[in-house]
Every structure is written in structure tokens, then in C-alpha cells.
Design a protein around this nucleic acid. Sequence first.
DNA 1: GTCTATATATTGATAGAC
DNA 2: GTCTATCAATATATAGAC
Lengths: 187, 187
Amino acid sequence: MSKKEALIDATKQLLWEKGYEATSPRDIQALSATGQGSFYHHFDGKKDLAIAALEEISREMLDIMRDNLAAKGPAQQRLESYLCKPRESLKGCRVGRLANEISMQDPQLGQPMRAYFEELTELLKHAIREAQEDGSLPAHLDAGDLATTLLAVVQGGFVLSRAQDRTDIHQSIARSMINLLFGGEAR
Amino acid sequence: MSKKEALIDATKQLLWEKGYEATSPRDIQALSATGQGSFYHHFDGKKDLAIAALEEISREMLDIMRDNLAAKGPAQQRLESYLCKPRESLKGCRVGRLANEISMQDPQLGQPMRAYFEELTELLKHAIREAQEDGSLPAHLDAGDLATTLLAVVQGGFVLSRAQDRTDIHQSIARSMINLLFGGEAR
DNA sequence: GTCTATATATTGATAGAC
DNA sequence: GTCTATCAATATATAGAC
């Protein structure tokens, strides 16, 4: 693995563990076993490296999400699987975790984040429309609103997990949402 | 206003605007027009002051939430009002905004945050149970799970608002959730 | 209680050798 | 491309006068 890759890998890890502000160039160099030279040879500075790292994170996550949400099989099952996906709740979402530190504060750093959530919303919206077409979801629901809501409920689950130091939040949420979406009075 | 109060007020503001890591003692002193002396006379340091500020924030927010959720009137209306409450979405939740910076990292700082979400969950749970008793919500839903879900959807709304730089997220979410909870096929 | 001056460690970046 | 040495600015805290 090249030093450049090592720097990006270490940054990906530290952005997840500590966030942007709390991660220093020296932290990154220590974790990746590189010197100042490699750092500033390959990147303009901390921000530039963070952008590269966040872009990789976003790509990796979207690949996983696409595999799930755009797979074959019943749309209802894919949506339930999205809600029930195993998550490292206490560590937070690798992307959303950074929303309060960056985003609007810095348009460049915010761009990969915006792109991630926009594409994820689209994936969810398509699956929702499929579920409406095959009758497993009511047609009167707005697919865009519902996609945003599913995303929000998962992101909020990360926030609450960390805020309350609880590992069961996402399970509660998944049960509740699946019940509201697919469960009838009968269930 | 005493210097001590001024310090806490400034900290409350900066924690909301910039978060914990990005707020320095000097920032706080500048905003509150105080010197080093006042800062370290009244507080042990940055963390101690942040705890005091977060406790005040939590109290203020809970007072507002109690006024809404534990008010008289139909429970359904109170729950809808919680979802539709005007929010400064782009600034993030004054409490939840800090979940990724502190919480488990520091038990002391995390305590006011944990307390905030625990009490808010209870308030929501009670309102949900009332709605189930008067028939406006189905009895088969788990009130605890649903309370967590409502909280999560609002917290996630803040995350997405900032991540995508959009002001309409909470409205989409509120429409969607109210539809799922109270709207029948007819609506 | 409040202020100014000072101290130490860390941050983010640069310089220059190899 | 990579390393070590160094730097200016800032973060956080202490000292001591008033």
C-alpha cells in the first residue's frame, strides 16, 4: 500500500472515530506511519486529505447501499433489510457523523456528504415506488417524503445511540417503522 | 448580568454554532466580554463550563417540550405539533448536535445529554399512550419504540438538513409521519 | 471577582536534506 | 516520494496585580 493510500485509510478511520476537528495531521501521520513529507507531498493540507477520505467513504457506503436497495427481489424485503441492517450504532454513521462539523461551513468538504445523501435518497425512493407498484405500500404516500423519512430515522438512530449510549435504538426504530409501513392492525 | 452568567450564555451560543471541539476558551471570553480571570475563577476549565452550559440548554429545551407534550388537549394534536414545530434545521439540535463530539467520550459531559433524551422519550411515550387510549393511535404499536422513532426522525431531520443544506427536510418528515400515524387510506 | 501577562503543549504548515 | 527539523499561530491554563 502506498503512503498516499495509507494516509487516506488512516483519515477515513479517524474521521469516523474522532470527527474532523479532533483529528490532527499528526494523528493521521502516526496512525499511517508516515512523515510530514508524505502528507504535504500528496495533499494540500488537512482539508484536502479529508475530502479525499470522505469521497472514498461515500463511494464505499453507496456501493453497499446499492447492492441492497437496488437488488432483485421484493421491494418490501429490501426496505425492511435497509431498516434492519446491522449497524455500529455507537460509532455513528461514517458520513452523517460529520454533518455538524462540516457541510455548510465548508462547501468543498460538504460536497461528498451532500452527494451521498442525495443518491441514497434516490435509491430509497425507487424502492418505495416499486413497493407501491406491487401493492406492498399504499399508493397515497409521497415516495420522496417517505425516502427522506427512512433516511432520517436511521440517522436519528445513530444520534440517539450515541447520546444515550444505547445499542438497541436502531432495533426499536426498525420494529416501529416496519409496523407502521407494512404491518396492518392484524399484526 | 454577572460575568458568570455571561460566560455560560456565550458558551451556550457557541456550542450550538460551532460545537464543542471548535469552541475555545478565548472564543467564549471574546463573545462574553470577559477576561481569563473570570473564566477560571468561576469554572475549572472549558469542560466544566461546557457542562454548565449544556445543563442549562437541556433545562430550557425540556421546559419547552413539556409545555407542548404534556399540555392539555388531544394527544394526537400534541404529537402532530411536536413533529411540525418550527425548527432552525440548519443550525442543528442544540443538544443532539453534540452527540458525535462528546457523550461516551466523556461521561460527565454526556450526562446532561443522556438526561435530556431520556426525559423527552418519556414525554413522548406518555402522549403516545394517551393517543392510544383515546383511539387516535392503534393500540398494538409499542409506545416506547414509537417514542424513540419520533425522536429519531426529528434528530435525523437535523442531520439531513445540514448535510444537504436543505430547509424543507423537517416538513417532509412531518407530513410523512403524520400520514403513517394518523392518516388512513382515505386521506 | 476581574483583569493583564505569561507559560506550555498542540495545531497545521513549511524548509530542506536524501 | 519520504524523512526530520523547524515555525508561527492557537488552545488551554496559570500567575499575580488590583
